[in-house]
Write a protein that binds this DNA or RNA. Sequence first.
DNA 1: CAGAAATTTGAAGACTTCTTCAGTGACGAA
DNA 2: TTCGTCACTGAAGAAGTCTTCAAATTTCTG
Lengths: 212, 212
Amino acid sequence: MAKTQGQKDRRAALISATQKAVIAHGADVKLTEIAKQAGLTSGAVLYHYPDVQSLILEANRAGTERFYDERMQMIAKIDDPAEKLVSTIRSGLPTDADDDAVRLFCELGGAARRHPIYGTLLTSLYDRQVAMYQVILETGAARGTFDLRQESLTIGRNLVALEDAYGYRMMAGHPTIDHEVACELLLDYARLATGHPLITKAALDEGTPTHD
Amino acid sequence: MAKTQGQKDRRAALISATQKAVIAHGADVKLTEIAKQAGLTSGAVLYHYPDVQSLILEANRAGTERFYDERMQMIAKIDDPAEKLVSTIRSGLPTDADDDAVRLFCELGGAARRHPIYGTLLTSLYDRQVAMYQVILETGAARGTFDLRQESLTIGRNLVALEDAYGYRMMAGHPTIDHEVACELLLDYARLATGHPLITKAALDEGTPTHD
DNA sequence: CAGAAATTTGAAGACTTCTTCAGTGACGAA
DNA sequence: TTCGTCACTGAAGAAGTCTTCAAATTTCTG
């Protein structure tokens, strides 16, 4: 579709196809798989991206950026710091073992030492997520919602670290750690660190009618 | 060396060489690299392990087992729960970005979805490490050393998760998170969860002579 | 030491992947 | 319509890998 809309569309479509291919076949995905995903031959892919590595890198970069952007959008709507913290924690954990974004991160993490650029990509994402948590924590502290028992940098770093680790555990198919269990593990730490009970929305929903 | 000691030695040497090769070239290491590391040709490797995949799997299995065994040995000598907890946390974090064991785990984690057996390997290791922490925590609680603010299962799961995540961050080359910083981040959580100040041995050594 | 068994080599075949490129078809401009 | 450009195909070459195997070498046994 969209045959005559210029290079930009085709390149965007190729990046999208490459993302799907990486998620399906790993960070060292073959050119053939990318071409198949895009509905083209390998020659056609090379026509647009003479260097396949740069295409894969661009796709992975776009994938990490998108994950961060979507998280920021999701929490932008929420004002209450406690509710914001809970929603942020929920949005950082994969929904299940098939979560595309977290799959991508695991692939990149495994390749990070051999391809240092992926390490840079993940480091940047990590630091920004820590800052995102710090803003929520400091705002809550300033408003008197939270009583921080540790520095916001410490709490932020640990929360993102826990997200990452439980993402890996879920990807590895841990039999008992699913989305809900991992959420509670993060929330238990957050409760300890913020001195706030952090009643989850799910818990609230249980005790109240669908619309009050 | 040791040319006449039979198959077992040769197979053990091959597993050792494969471990080095995996750490150097990733979970999908080539037969050629294994042979080079072992000082043999690819044909000779196949003579002992007709199926290369089974050799790599065996090497990776041995690598994770060894990591766990060494941790257990290291902490077995220590009696005081607080000191034991601090030492355990220290031993679970890579010393630097070149730490072989943690390199291996990152490689396996990246490949876990494509090779579910590696997911099983890592899951098994994770669960045993959690149990290891639980024993320390419960012992300390029973002795009155710790005042656990969360269930020992929660604390154990979160501590191992933090170890894993900071291992990944260090492998990815995070500019500010090194062994010491990561230790403090874990210790800060452990202090909160156990209600114990967990003075580190390093800190103690600073304030006391080498032999009292 | 001589023969048997175990071990290793080196090369060949089959396979996969990357990359190049001559040729094909579609589309727009003149 | 004709020409030229763009997008793409499909085949061929180059490089790397896995696997097999006959032959050579080393080690063991009597």
